[in-house]
Design a protein around this nucleic acid. Structure first.
Lengths: 182, 182
DNA sequence: GTCTATACGAGGATAGAC
DNA sequence: GTCTATCCTCGTATAGAC
């Protein structure tokens, strides 16, 4: 289910698809799960756990700004899209309260990590003193999510990488601006 | 069809939905259109035309950086999502060559306008001389597209606005950095 | 041009045998 | 626990009458 959720989204994935990919019969599936909904909630929860775990660079070693740049520069399969962010455009998924909660929580966790790193960077003088950590966190998370959109629109990885490079350049410019402050 | 494409996406919209919203019978619809596919292509093409028309501030009056900021700050209904970018996550839409072309072309047009404005801003000394217009164009387009994703994840407008504010702040920082160059 | 009738497969799930 | 049979609705489209 996790795979199909990534490839096709929630609405476009049928229980039959899941069974056939898992190689099990109907009886088995409906014995262990109540239906498509539960299948999706459990799969997406696991995926979200993985995703937030992958954000470790933000809490790792190095100066705060270095950590932010390292996380931004992580390889991302642009044309495949974000396994969590994807749900955001799926009408049935966004409508479903449980699924939406899983997605929202995952993003909240990510944004929290961003905010911490940004706050540290401001304190270290690596970013301008008047930087709003909450705003910048959302900007950088949006660059990544938007990078997926642009990459999928063209069916190429390049737009994702370009978007990230542009963000890295802006962060560098912000650092030189911060240095001129004192 | 354009409305439903926005609200539910391509896969989740059925010809029946379209007929019922338009208040026409089956015969009428299939008399004027070959089917769901053509309906979507024509609707999305019209929407894309509107969208690129709305990007006029990028070519308008004022200094290049001002124009960029003005366009970024345009009001955007975050929780509704982007009518064009949305298609990007729709498995059936991205798979469809014609629909994907419409989406890709719309983004290419937008990115072109961004690149021109950015190039002008660099020439005017409003952005650092080593700015890559292609990269930054994709970064800023990604902020908007990603802003939609974050807003929909929470079902609130606020993340979109925050992401844009953060981008505006980064552009300002880049301008002060550019001023220190000479 | 527009309507109603019809077709057939897929989606989602239940029933009950083994 | 797993399998097959079965159910009903929806999606997508065609046929043919008015």
């Amino acid at each position: 289910m996790a795979e199909l959720l990534w490839e096709r989204g929630y609405a476009a994935t049928s229980p039959r698809d899941v069974m056939s990919r898992a190689g099990v019969g109907q009886g088995s599936m409906y014995h262990h799960f109540t239906g498509k909904h539960q299948l999706a909630v459990e799969a997406l929860t696991a995926v979200a756990r993985d995703m937030t775990a992958a954000a470790s660079p933000l809490d790792g070693d190095g100066s705060p700004l270095e950590r932010m740049k390292r996380y931004l520069a992580l390889p991302r399969p642009g044309t495949l899209g974000c396994r969590v962010g994807r749900m955001t455009q799926d009408p049935q998924a966004v409508t479903d309260p449980e699924l939406r909660t899983v997605v929202a929580t995952a993003f909240d966790t990510m944004l929290d990590r961003w905010e911490h790193a940004i706050t540290d960077a401001v304190a270290a003088g690596e970013l301008p003193a008047d930087t709003d950590p909450g705003d910048l966190a959302r900007t950088l998370a949006a660059v990544i999510q938007g990078g997926y959109v642009l990459a999928r629109a063209r069916g190429e990885q390049q737009p994702m990488d370009a978007a990230v490079r542009g963000a890295l350049a802006l962060l560098d410019a912000a650092r030189t601006a911060a240095r001129g402050e004192h």
